[in-house]
């Protein structure tokens, strides 16, 4: 089953160049991507290639200029109850307690207070933050805030999860812990996830497939299937298979880099 089909998506902006004149900046061009139901797909590519732009379009936060995007075989709608997004900057409501933050999506869906409470507590337990339910976001560490943000979208069970470098602002240790937590949570109920990252290791560890983008034109250059067994655990980072895939990815990127000089920045 295909969850998302993007066909020849185009997106450009008008920006002022150094002379102050308006100039057309093509960001996405000929962008094709299929995301399968229940898969974990990572999107990797050089800075400025248009990853966030595509994610925002899928999230209904931005428009595209031409091409076609189907979600569940229907045209992408700006308003949807089936999507959840985790931002790099957490985007928690600072005036709400941790639990009330989790309940936001449930509130929007019109659930009763008792039901909201039950569900939010369940997901807080899942991310190990039940003891902090009455804290405010500013009283939590960065890792805890990102856990809350993830639990907040999980709580209303969207069919499509969009994550834009969710762990980029965290320290290496917290990041590794959250990667494993996300793996466990996702492997339990396999929602479709589109995950943007700059870390090849992170992409390999988490994903079923990794899509590599090129910039100018911003489009999918390569897709690699990561056939590491599941459920994956901490140890897999040190396994021979992991190292093998990593080598394959590196040589692929090097070849791409030689073919297309604008494709670089993360090797």
């Amino acid at each position: 089953m295909v969850k998302v089909q993007a066909r020849q998506v185009e997106r450009h902006f008008f920006v002022r160049n150094s002379l102050g004149k308006k100039e057309r900046l093509g960001v996405l061009s000929g962008f094709d991507l299929d995301i399968y139901e229940g898969e974990f797909l990572s999107l990797v590519g050089p800075s400025g290639c248009g990853k966030t732009t595509f994610l925002n379009i899928l999230a209904g936060l931005d428009d595209y200029d031409s091409g076609e995007i189907l979600v569940d075989h229907k045209r992408l709608e700006k308003h949807s109850f089936d999507r959840g997004m985790v931002f790099q900057g957490y985007a928690l409501f600072p005036w709400r307690t941790v639990r009330k933050n989790l309940e936001a999506g449930l509130e929007i869906r019109g659930l009763s207070p008792a039901e909201r409470r039950r569900i939010s507590r369940r997901y807080l337990e899942l991310v190990g933050l039940l003891a902090f339910e009455n804290h405010y976001p500013h009283q939590l560490s960065g890792g805890m805030r990102q856990r809350v943000a993830i639990a907040r979208v999980l709580a209303y069970e969207p069919g499509l999860l969009l994550m834009d470098e969710p762990f980029a602002a965290l320290d290496a240790q917290t990041r590794e812990v959250l990667q494993i937590e996300l793996l466990k949570i996702w492997e339990a109920d396999k929602k479709t996830i589109l995950f943007i990252t700059h870390s090849i290791d992170e992409a390999i560890l988490l994903s079923d497939r990794v899509a590599f983008m090129s910039s100018a034109p911003g489009r999918i250059q390569d897709i690699i299937t990561i056939d590491l067994p599941r459920p994956r655990t901490e140890e897999i980072r040190n396994s021979a298979e992991f190292a093998g895939i990593r080598r394959r990815v590196s040589s692929l990127l090097r070849n791409d880099f030689l073919k297309n000089m604008s494709f670089g920045g993360y090797l």
Binding site: A59, H79, S80, F81, R83, M85, A91, F93, R109
Partner: peptide, 9 residues
């Protein structure tokens, strides 16, 4: 914050 609320529907 507004964008995040939007994505929640």
């Amino acid at each position: 914050l507004v964008r995040s609320a939007k994505t929640m529907g």
